[in-house]
């Protein structure tokens, strides 16, 4: 079992890991020859939010080598906090050399490499940050090691992407930062939010409490065209029919930490079942990667319209 690579986009990796760290302590990373998957299983937080994401190797890495007797795949589990600390350090050391010359810790021509190693019986990820000191120009090297746990094929088999019915609707979400700010304000009013949308591109967020009913409505959101396998074409739904799912506001906030990743996001509603959000890394067309959040819907006693 071997793994080593250069990390070419530390800031992006840092943001991805920050988003994940907002919703879980542990994360499974599945390394394969062309993709890296970041997985947060549902048992990691009490709202049952899961993340199944995949990022193309070339979006984050170069000189990427992974070898194993399991289809050249390696599955690891690690503490997000530990990884986050390393990435923070690496991010400030690399800093692209362009900006922030005041940053004394920043190195010139910085490079970060990552290797799977062993220390005794403990598997570790060893990060090497190399560069030249800004002041003296002398070569510098910083090494970080974090413990990782290699998953057995049995554990791998137990991790399954949640099964969802075909979504009732897809639509492109408004700016995630705006949405995050609004949802965090809703969080002071109620525990749950109802997300509804129709095929006219209308989306509503509704909260209800003893004192107030509040609905925020967006219009003309983009509905992505689907490459439908339309053999089993059912009768078309009316464009103004609203589909909805009630989710904990806390779960929405967790998913919305992904505004850090900064891409376009598409939401799918499987009515009364779940909300799925795809947050794209880079341009959708480039398909650099996507973070997929599954947020299970709550069943709402008094709200069954």
């Amino acid at each position: 079992m071997r793994f080593r690579t250069h990390i070419i986009n530390i800031p992006l990796l840092h943001r991805i890991i920050r988003s994940l760290a907002a919703l879980a302590r542990l994360c499974v990373i599945r390394l394969s020859e062309d993709k890296v998957h970041f997985i947060v299983p549902g048992n990691e937080n009490k709202d049952g939010v899961q993340v199944w994401s995949q990022v193309k190797v070339e979006t984050l890495f170069s000189n990427f080598r992974v070898e194993s007797n399991n289809k050249n795949e390696i599955w690891l589990e690690l503490h997000l906090d530990a990884l986050l600390k390393v990435l923070k350090s690496a991010d400030s050391s690399i800093n692209d050399g362009i900006t922030d010359s005041r940053n004394a810790t920043s190195l010139q021509d910085g490079e970060v490499s990552l290797k799977l190693n062993k220390r005794g019986n403990q598997a570790i990820w060893a990060f090497d940050i190399r560069g030249r000191s800004q002041l003296s120009g002398k070569p510098m090297q910083i090494t970080h090691e974090i413990n990782v746990h290699v998953l057995s094929p049995k554990r791998q088999g137990e991790l399954n992407e949640p099964l969802c019915p075909p979504p009732d609707i897809h639509l492109v979400l408004p700016n995630l930062t705006d949405l995050r700010n609004l949802v965090s304000r809703l969080g002071t009013m109620a525990d749950d939010v109802k997300l509804s949308a129709n095929h006219e591109g209308k989306m509503e967020l509704t909260v209800r409490s003893k004192n107030v009913d509040l609905t925020t409505t967006w219009d003309k959101l983009h509905i992505p065209t689907q490459n439908t396998d339309s053999e089993e074409e059912e009768e078309p739904v009316p464009a103004d029919k609203m589909f909805s799912a009630v989710v904990p506001i806390r779960a929405m906030q967790k998913f919305l930490t992904s505004h850090l990743v900064g891409g376009v996001a598409i939401a799918c509603i499987c009515e009364k079942h779940c909300l799925i959000a795809y947050v794209y890394i880079g341009e959708i067309s480039e398909a650099g990667g996507v973070l997929t959040f599954f947020i299970p819907a709550k069943t709402f006693g008094d709200d069954d319209d």
Partner: peptide
Amino acid sequence: KGPVTTCELS
């Protein structure tokens, strides 16, 4: 412009 919010206060 942008999203609209309607609220009903009890």
